[in-house]
Write a protein that binds this DNA or RNA. Structure first.
Lengths: 163, 163
DNA sequence: GCCAAAGTGTAACTTTATTACAGATTGCCA
DNA sequence: TGGCAATCTGTAATAAAGTTACACTTTGGC
């Protein structure tokens, strides 16, 4: 999933993410509890990564007060179900917007507007497999975080009058 | 640079890393202060990543007591000179063992013995360039951290008697 | 309706990283 | 050569991120 269009119907993409959570939880025998749903809703409110203590603040604003440990637990569930990702370089978390299984996404992070987009590029995956294999390394898991400018911000950058 | 052989001459690879630090500092007009040299020495003592508070402990054992902020400052210098890398997924730091400029390494981390190796694979780099470009994303910087088993640990895994 | 598994809530605490600020050192050049 | 700006140092306090411990509650299967 690439960067969303400026005026995309965000309600739809949030709704389908919640539906995926339900489906996957059922399949794996986990419960979709209030806390989990609440944390995912906060993550879904934006295509940006958000830290745990900010999740707590937003969630408190919405009338549901959660302690850090409760949010970490909810995030563990969401990540186990592939419904959220952790951005290592930002100590922050992100709702997954991919339709299918999204186990090893490459994550693009705009250094300007902070929006985040995932992709699962087959060529990148194959190149990483080959390169690690050539070193005798058995690849199990990966964190690929790409920093740069999203389409909107890079076109603004060459037209500074629009800032 | 791939995983070191078990009995490689570690003194040599540490010495050449310190020489690179001197050369690069001279070129960039920075000073190689005691603190910087001390922190790099600690990093060079192992092909594993080490956290700041552990660097402090090791360095104190060696008779040089450093506060966290002093170590963070030294690491900033080392990273700016390409002599150290941060492992985002471990909140830990690593001496760079590459000979040339090492601005965007792919880092392999053994989940068993914790040793770390860098590579700068051209095919991976090109694949990431292409994939981001196809999304209209201007790539500036990247964190590629690959978790798995190093050659030694993966061969042990299929011969459990050797554990 | 009982029981084990899973989830909740609260508190204290550990680990990682940053801010603030006053003082010392260095290298340049006037 | 001595003064000054830039850089580096040391200390303390604090912020931010993540974990542990533990007693309690809910849930779903039998």
């Amino acid at each position: 999933m690439s960067f969303p269009l400026k005026h995309h119907r965000h309600g739809n993409c949030a709704r389908s993410a919640l539906a995926r959570l339900d489906a996957r939880a059922k399949k794996s025998g986990r419960r979709v509890t209030d806390n989990v749903k609440c944390v995912l809703s906060v993550l879904l409110s934006d295509h940006r990564a958000i830290g745990v203590y900010d999740i707590a603040a937003v969630s408190a604003d919405h009338g549901k007060s959660l302690q850090p440990v409760q949010i970490y637990r909810a995030l563990d569930t969401l990540m186990a179900l592939g419904c959220a990702h952790r951005i290592e370089s930002a100590n922050a978390y992100l709702a997954c917007h991919a339709e299918g299984d999204c186990t090893a996404p490459q994550i693009m992070i705009c250094t300007d507007c902070k929006r985040v987009a995932e992709m699962e590029n087959e060529t990148v995956r194959a190149a990483l497999d080959d390169a690690t294999h050539a070193n005798g390394f058995v690849l199990q898991n990966q964190h690929v975080e790409l920093l740069g400018l999203c389409p909107d911000c890079s076109s603004n950058a060459v037209q500074p009058a629009q800032h």
